[in-house]
Every structure is written in C-alpha cells, then in structure tokens.
Design a protein around this nucleic acid. Structure first.
Lengths: 254, 254
DNA sequence: CGTAGCTTTGAGTGTTATCAACTCTCGTGG
DNA sequence: CCACGAGAGTTGATAACACTCAAAGCTACG
C-alpha cells in the first residue's frame, strides 16, 4: 500500500495539467482568455514538470527555449559575479512567470533554482510569441506581465539603493504576505522557503544582519519568528517601517 | 538676423520627423521593419517634441498615454519615497525607449526629467499595441526591448546589492562609454549630462562619495575628470575594477 | 541519535554617510 | 566692470550602520 504522503502527491500529478482546468488560471498567463484561445494555449504549453528542492530549472548562460509558469512551490533566480558574490534577483511564487529576462539575449542571465518541491509549466517561447500574434488579449497580457516585472525591479532598485536594512526586510516581508493574500491564502502566516542567506542575497545584506533583524522585529512585537515560519503581528507598524515613516532615519536636511 | 544658436536649432527641427528617414532607425523601435510597416509606424508616431533642460516628460502617478523614444539628449527617471529620498532608476540616451514600466498599472511609477535639451518621439501606447498585433516583427522587437530592460534592471540589482561604491561607479562609467560607442560615437570622451547628485541617486551613494571616487579614479590614472567631461584613460583597469577582479575586496571565504 | 547545515548572537572593524567648510563657475544687477 | 549670490563640486573630520569573523545553539534528516 502507498504511504499517505506519496498517494496525495500522485493524485495531484494525475490531473492532466491544462490551463483550462487550472486553479491558477486567472493568476497566470491564461488570464482573461476565452475558451477557444485557452485551447490554443493548451496546445502550446507542455506537461507540468516537477522539481525537487535544490533542482535547477536553468542555468545562467543556457539558451532560452521556454518560459516557465510556476504552479506550486517557489523558485529563486540568482545572478553571479566572477568572484562568487551572488545577487538573488527574484523570488517567484505560484502564478508567476519565469525567464522573461532571457528574451533579449536568447540566453538566461540568471540561474533558477527550486527552493522546495515545486511544479512548473513549460511554455516554449517561440510558440508563445507566435500565438500572441494571433490572440490580441494574450499579447496584451504578456506586455502587462513584462511591464510588471520592470516596475517590480524598479521598486527593488529603490530598496537596494536608498533603504536601510530594517526598511528592506520590512518591505520584503510585506511583499510576501501580500502576494500570498492575492492567491486567496492566509495573509498572516508565512512559511519562508528560502535561507537567511538567500534573503540576504536578495536584500543586499549579510545573512547575520537578516537574522538580527528578525530577532529585533520579534522583540518589538512586529512579527513572531519560529525559524522559517513568520507570523504577522502588527501590519501597520511593519508598513510604517517599510516606508521609512518610523525609526531614526536621517534623510538628510536638504 | 537670428542669433547663431537659434538658427542651428531651428534647422534641425525643420526636418519632418519620420521613422523612415530617422538616423536612429536601426537603434530604435523601427529596427528591422520593412518599408510598408515603417509607413504604418509613422502614422502612429507623433511629431517630435522638444524638451528643455529640467522639463518633465511625465510625473510619477500620471496616467500612461504614450511611450517616448529619445531622439537626442538624455533623460533620467526617478522614483521618490515619501520622506524625499530619491532613487534614479535609469538614465536614457538616444534610441532608448521610455515609459514601459507604466504599462502594467497604466500609470507612470517614475518621473521623467530631461537632463539637457532633448528631443523625444511620442508613441501613443494603445496604437502601438494595436500595430504590434498586425506586424509580427514589431511585436517581436517590443518583447525584446522589454526583456532588455528587465535584464538591465537585474544588472543594476546586482550592482546595488553586492558591489562596492568603487565597483559601482566603474561599471556605470563603462556602461555610458559603451552605449555611446554603440551609437557610433567616440568611445573615449564622455560628457555627463547629470549632476553628481543624480549619479549618487542612481548608484545608491552620497554625492560626496561619487565626487571622491572621481578624484581617486583620476589619481590612479583610470580616467581624466574635468567637471562633467570624462576621458577614458585605462579601459582595461577600469573594467577590472568594475568586475571586482582588482582591489581589496573581501568576498568572504565560504 | 548523530551529524551537517542552518541560525543566532557577540565582538570588533571598515566602508560609506553625514555634516561642514571652502572653491569654482556662471549669470545678474548695481 | 566688479560685487554678489546661487548652484555645483571638492575635500576633510567624524560617526554609524552593516560587514566580517567567531563560536555556540538549533533543526532536520538520514
């Protein structure tokens, strides 16, 4: 007889993955498409693929063949410097699209690694572009997704360039809470799938700094920290921190 | 009789701006389009618009109506925090496209300001999207441009998150030299159109730090600095600096 | 239950920000 | 014509925030 865990997992995977039937339909590429166009999209999208924790979806330098939509789990993308310093350029959750930074050069500039067991849908890029040509709504939505990515990166630039360590972590946590809430999940309990090191590499901080901030935020009653499990205790004050409205920040007299 | 300056300016503006005849044709949106499609694009693009130094093209929060292609001059885009801290999210030069970060939310997230007298071509966004639907090559190129912007932002994330002040300025200068060279201009002499403050707000540094670095780079014979005029003296060593290959950097023993 | 990897906490240091003073350029008006 | 002032840039002194190194505690998983 099957072990319980395995049985559950197999059940999920047995569902033939079609955009038409996907729970994330309105959070992902198919958003807003009608039945006919969904059918066309399903002929393009490949079968769902499973990734184990730590498995790489692609490496920096790999030629672009497909984009990947995340169905479940989470993935980080990392850019590397020659001397080994790493910058995590993004954490991607369910419903988010991966690989669009590769379209320009036809090569992936970053490495994508699963932070936990994850499932992704593979979308061959040439076929997607071709399809977008015939489905106005899809083209429109792709422009939207790419623009959103740019706006998000700009927000990160502001964080890395102008915010204190404290503000960065506060903003980052709020972003996770919000993205989880958008998917209709609990907006107060968060299970981080990444290491302190990854958070540091994302926020431009040392892992020790991240750890110290978690401790401090807990002392101040903003959150409760139990390893990777974070509970939101005081959204308003965390928000205030993220906006620099609080704290002893200097913001030079001009 | 006209003053000399004015006469010159009027001459340039008298040229009816069409993509077909534009010197930047292959560095801008029309890249790779055939004659017929160029004609269609010209019916969409509005007449060239002049901006004086300091003039705003749009403000953060403005609704998106058009994208803007820069014909001449240079423009900076700035995101602002409530408390006044500014992050310059990009410097845009001839042939580059402005405003694509606004597509997602239909509002500009940044303010765009001319750093010097500049000319921009206005491209109403709805019409551009519509045209891309009928011109596969244009759609393809727009995806390319947007992807390039994402890849560029990711590069900036790496800079702001993981590079020292020295490395950031070196990389930034090299980027300016290269972008100028790509347009077929002199690759050794650079006229910066922005303030030290702007460079600082772009690189996440205080203006004093930027100024000190210019002085240091000059002492070390990497560049020659005369106010806003920069001359490249030792490309190889500047490159080495930008890649962290040189210098007393720590890159922790892992 | 043991070990490897992750996380926390502490102590000391350094890079870069802030504040401050001075210089330089350029345009304006007395 | 020169004094004046505003804006930009340089340079110096000091201090703070976050980094590095170090060691101990914790967790999870074989």
């Amino acid at each position: 007889m099957d072990k319980k865990q395995t049985a559950t997992i197999i059940n999920i995977s047995n569902i033939r993955a079609t955009c038409k039937e996907c729970a994330l339909r309105e959070h992902c590429i198919p958003q807003g498409l009608d039945e006919a166009d969904l059918g066309a999209l399903d002929r393009v999208v490949k079968r769902r693929r499973k990734l184990k924790k730590g498995e790489l979806l692609y490496r920096a330098g790999d030629p672009l063949r497909s984009l990947f939509a995340i169905f479940s789990g989470s993935i980080k993308t990392t850019g590397l410097m020659e001397d080994g310093r790493a910058q995590v350029t993004g954490f991607y959750l369910s419903g988010e699209l991966l690989g669009i930074d590769a379209i320009n050069s036809a090569r992936h500039p970053c490495t994508a690694e699963a932070l936990e067991s994850s499932e992704v849908c593979e979308i061959p890029y040439p076929a997607l572009e071709e399809l977008a040509q015939h489905v106005p709504h899809l083209q429109h939505h792709l422009f939207q997704i790419m623009s959103r990515e740019i706006a998000r990166d700009e927000q990160m630039l502001l964080m890395l360039g102008r915010m204190s360590a404290e503000e960065r972590l506060a903003a980052c946590l709020l972003s996770f809470f919000r993205r989880q809430a958008r998917l209709g999940l609990n907006g107060r309990d968060l299970k981080l799938s990444m290491l302190r090191q990854d958070l540091g590499d994302y926020l431009g901080l040392a892992l020790e700094t991240v750890s110290r901030l978690f401790s401090r935020f807990q002392e101040e009653g903003l959150i409760k920290v139990e390893g990777r499990h974070i509970q939101l205790r005081d959204p308003a004050r965390l928000e205030a921190l993220a906006n620099g409205s609080a704290g002893s920040h200097h913001s030079r007299q001009n």
